[in-house]
Design a protein around this nucleic acid. Sequence first.
RNA 1: AGGCCCGUAGCUCAGUUGGUUAGAGCGCUACCUUGACACGGUAGAGGUCUGGGGUUCGAGUCCCCACGGGCCUACCA
Length: 965
Amino acid sequence: MCPRLNGEVWRMAREIAKVYEPQQIEPRWAEFWVKEALFKADAGARGPVFSIVIPPPNVTGSLHIGHMLEHTEIDILTRWHRMRGYNTLFLPGTDHAGISTQRVVVKYLADQGINYQKLGREEFEKQVWKWKEEAGGQITEQMKGIGESCDWSRERFTLSPEMSRKVREVFVRLFEEGLIYRATRLVNWCPDCLTVLSDLEVVHEERQGHLWYIKYSVVGTNEFLTVATTRPETMLGDTAVAVHPEDERYKHLIGKKALLPLMNREIPIIADEMVDREFGTGAVKVTPAHDPNDFEVGKRHNLAEIDVMTDDAHMNANAGAYAGMDRFAARKKIVEDLKAQGLLEKITDHTNAIGLCERSKTVVEPRISTQWFCKMQNLAAPAIKAVEEYAPGKENTIYIIPDNRRTEYLNWMHNIRDWTISRQLWWGHRIPAWYCKENKHITVARETPAKCATCGSSNLEQDPDVLDTWFSSQLWPFSTLGWPEETVDFKKYYPTTLMVNGYDILFFWVARMIMMGLHFTGKVPFRTVYLHALVRTGSGEKMSKSKGTGLDPVALNQQYGTDAMRFCLASMAAPGTDIILSDDKLASSRNFANKIWNAARFLFVNLDKFEQTGAKLEDLARPEVRAKAPYAAGGKIPLVDAWLFARLAATIEMVNDALSNCRFHEAAQGVYQFFWGDFCDWYIEWVKPELQSADRERATVAWKNLFAAFDAALRLLHPLMPFLTEELWHQMPQAAGAKSIALDKFPEVTVQWRRRFFCVFNQAARRLRRIFLVWKKDAEPGPEQPTEKQLSGSSKFLDAAALESVALIQDLITAARNIRAELKLDPKRKVSADCFVQNPTARKLIQANEEPILRLAGLSEIRYSSSSLNSAGGVVRSTAVFDLRISFGEGIDREAEIARLSKEIDRLEKDIRSKQDRLADPEFIKKAPQHVVDNLRATMVERQLEQKKLKSQLEQRQGRQAVGT
RNA sequence: AGGCCCGUAGCUCAGUUGGUUAGAGCGCUACCUUGACACGGUAGAGGUCUGGGGUUCGAGUCCCCACGGGCCUACCA
């Protein structure tokens, strides 16, 4: 049951706290949204579709700041679409995160003195599942806590039995198509995780190392051949020395043998084009079992492959005397021994990029191993095409935002290499391949086979390995929606609308989803990819919990409020730039939330006074209030009301435009500016007296417009700040009004009463024609994509005249305040002012709005002058339209005034001159568009007028000063 | 090695196809505890857009070079 839903909704508001306390409010709504299943998608419902699947976070993880950003962005877009009447699905889920989770559990067990290998596979898997059941709820609970509007009934897990079937289906199909194969290759091996890694899981790091120059004696001569290596320990597995075939220095040695030091093994000296004559000595030791290049050379020259290490990177029996040593200890010892034997020519410094395991940061060891691979080139081709051929509206193409990531994607895809998909782990999707123990046949099947497909033997053993985590997550957009079955969800929500995630997993995940989506469904998995920024620390590093540089979003949400966090992240989320979060910024967003809260307080607190005028609150409770706003009094819309709604309309258009391009920072800035600047600072201040006007009609109109605008502002803000706006909206007369209307006239809606809440209000109450942009009557979306006009039909409220008129009045008020500040007038003291306005329309406008001008500027009266004002006896501010003077002599600081005037005149002078120059240039007149020329000319005239006024004021000031002295 | 991005006010950053006086938040200065809000109000100071060259009637915006910072991809021992 809604915490705020009762008969006296808005009355409760009057006891509202002075400072917004999100901690009191957020948990209530978070729980409510989930409990009432308000975000459950209805595949049968009408309306254009907006569907999004979450990038599944690690099941055993907890919410970090990167999730907070990503989930905020997704939720903003989801709520925004839902409120506009889209059939919206936001599908949540988690990833089993093979290697990452296994490491966590291995460590957990180790901390308890348990060796996971001794535990055995079956028991270990049980432990991980247990761990998953216990820890796995954390992140989803956190997601609920921050109010993500997911459809929890559709939650998925990448390692569920359901997903497993799909993974097998995909594996078998790819195998049958020849795209998955088994091969023996030199792979990246992590000696700590004890598994093979894909190229992407190897991170490179520049490190200061050495080049060791080692002398190999040439058999049968007294010559030495010196090779340079960065890894002396691998020499134990050398099976050749290679030189360039054209290298004159070594040509005579080709075909001879070299004696491998320490091992006393004779190895051939071969010629290969691969050798770079410029590097080192131009002679290379060849270790096919421990270097990718050497591996290739070995294949070409039919060299033996001697693996000198164990799987945990210790030297093995092949390493002779060094067997049993750690690879780095062995290196040290080998260098010492070489030195002792006089075979170490020299050591030089050398920086090179070494490969580290992404997870353990252990130095990756290239190692020969038999693994499963996925052939990528054919899969990549259509995925390249889909992105290359993108055009707005073009079917089956993908739009990548921001643009530069698109280039990155294409570059990588064009150079794609086969993907190592097997992992020597226990936690993951087991590879559906069975080996016949009798004749080594391989059977790949969807279901566990009873016998070998080839020879019929039942002596089978399943491949012990599991699949790379990304193998299952790459299926996510369609596996979660029911594929391979043509389910209702799949038909309705696939392809998904949008994929939002960090650019760091563009290749890991996004690229693979595109390939698999196209391959298995024939359709792109999503139409747009938005790659968001990464949240970094102050020093520019990626935030990391292990380094202690991470910010805990849960704690920060508690401190500042989730809405403040969301707003803060959104306001910094400009595409393409990373984010550095700070307390300052969070505090500023929290202040904004508090501002909204207090604006609401103002409305609610003053309702009493409105009631005292004899008006009925029910007048405000009708939804038409919104539909008809701005409301008119005496047949006329009050100027400032027209202005506010024009500003609102402009803001809405801006926000819609921004959000449709994932420009969250613009949307945030737009609503901030509107709410704080326009609504609070100007509008509320301006209409305060009118709300209590004796003129009942004017007062009613003021209240209606105030509530209508506030209601609209809340809707506009809702995607960004869902908790606060939900809380406040339920205290609005509109909430009660909307509910009562629904009850009266739309019984079929009342059946689903619980859907009448703000967050989903528009979706369920579409019949009421209330959508996000509520006062746009025709904005109800049809079955197809809403038209441009429907989504931004507010232009009829873009009252240009109102915007201009109020801008003029604001200038006048600001000018008066400016003079007051300069004169250091007591803010309470009201003073009279003189005003000259040449333009009769402008003058009439000012006279018609004298009350708010006097009040907001702190003036007692305005005396209209018939000629331009000089600064005699006071201080003047002038624009091209008006002169305003306040005469209150004693406070004038003449020197400062002269300085200010001179500075201003100089600035104008520079400006005028540059404009004159440009206008005098015939090329400019000829080539620049007419409106630019016209504009320039008009502004120049204005500036000249202003400058003239200032000059005369300056002269006078100086003159008076002269008289005074 | 190749590719990409960034360098705008003291700080953190906006600035969409080149076009009036380059914006915001924080910080700073002055005044104000005014019946929504001091997590507030009012007014203000403060950048010539890293440097140099070019294209253009016009450049923070496009091109080239240099300097400084960051990122990604890559099997040079």
